[in-house]
Amino acid sequence: MTTDSVAMLRTHGLNVTAQRLAVLRAVSARPHATAQELADDVRLEIGSISRQSVYDTLTLLTERDLIRRIQPAGSSARFEDRVGDNHHHLVCRRCDRLVDVDCATGEVPCLIPVDSGDFIVDEAEVTYWGICPDCQALPAEA
C-alpha cells in the first residue's frame, strides 16, 4: 500500500509525510474506526504523535476525498478508505458494529429524491439500522 499511498498523496497535491502514510495505513487496516482508535494505531506504528495531528490529517484526507468520514446518529465519527462508490452502511443497534452495504440501486447516487429543489444530486447517504447476527444469537435484553 505504501507505493500506492505515496502516489495517491502526490496526485492530490499533498506532501508525503510519515504521519499521512501511517494514517492512511491505519484507516485501511481498520475500516470504520473512530479518530481515537486510529490515533492509537498510528501511535503504535510510528511512536509519538499528537491526537490533534491525527485529527488534522483525517480532516485533510477527508477534504481531499482520500478517505470518507461517516457519523451514524449517536455515534462518534468513523473513517474508511472506501470512497467514490456511494455505498451505504448498516449499524447494529446493540453493539454498534458497522458494515458496508452496496448501493441500493447500483448507480450513483443510488437514490433520487422526489423533489430535488433544483439541486443536482450526486450522492445519497443511507444508514440502515438493525441487529447483527452475533447480537441476534445472544439472549434478548430485558
Rank of each mutant, 00 (worst) to 15 (best):
N86H: 02
A39Y: 05
A73C: 03
D81Y: 02
D81T: 07
V23S: 03
I70C: 04
D85I: 13
G130F: 11
Y128M: 13
A33W: 03
F79I: 02
T34I: 02
Q71W: 01
H88N: 08
C110Q: 05
R43I: 04
H87S: 14
H89V: 14
L14D: 00
I49Q: 10
P133G: 12
I112D: 11
D85W: 06
F119L: 15
A22H: 07
R30E: 11
C103F: 00
R68L: 14
S53W: 02
A73D: 15
E125R: 03
I70P: 01
E37R: 08
L38G: 03
L38C: 02
H89G: 02
Q71C: 02
A26Y: 02
M8T: 11
G13P: 07
A26E: 00
A142Q: 12
A39T: 15
A33G: 14
L58G: 00
A35C: 05
V42D: 08
G74C: 14
S48F: 09
D115K: 07
Q52R: 15
T127K: 01
G130M: 13
R25S: 14
L90C: 08
E37K: 07
G130R: 09
P139V: 04
I70A: 04
Y128E: 08
D4I: 10
S48N: 12
R78Y: 04
F79Q: 03
I131G: 07
F119T: 07
A142M: 04
A124H: 06
T11E: 15
L98I: 15
D4G: 09
D85K: 09
V108S: 10
G117R: 13
T62Y: 01
S75V: 03
R68T: 01
S48P: 00
H89L: 14
I120F: 05
V23W: 03
F119N: 14
A142K: 10
E80W: 01
Y128T: 02
T3Y: 08
L14G: 06
L138Y: 05
R10I: 07
E141W: 06
D134N: 13
R20N: 06
G84C: 07
C103Q: 12
R30T: 15
C110S: 10
A77L: 01
M8N: 14
D134L: 12
I67A: 03
T3S: 13
E63S: 08
T2S: 10
R93D: 15
D100A: 14
A29L: 11
G84V: 04
L24P: 04
V23M: 01
P31I: 03
E80P: 00
I46L: 12
A140Y: 01
D118R: 15
G117V: 06
R78G: 05
N15R: 12
I131M: 08
A39W: 13
L138C: 06
T62V: 00
T127R: 06
S75W: 04
V83M: 07
E80S: 12
A124L: 00
D96V: 06
R51S: 11
D41N: 04
R94L: 13
S116P: 15
R10L: 12
P113K: 08
R20W: 06
V83K: 08
R97A: 15
I131F: 05
I112N: 11
H32C: 10
A77K: 10
I49R: 10
D134R: 14
V42A: 09
E123V: 00
A18G: 09
T105Y: 00
T59F: 06
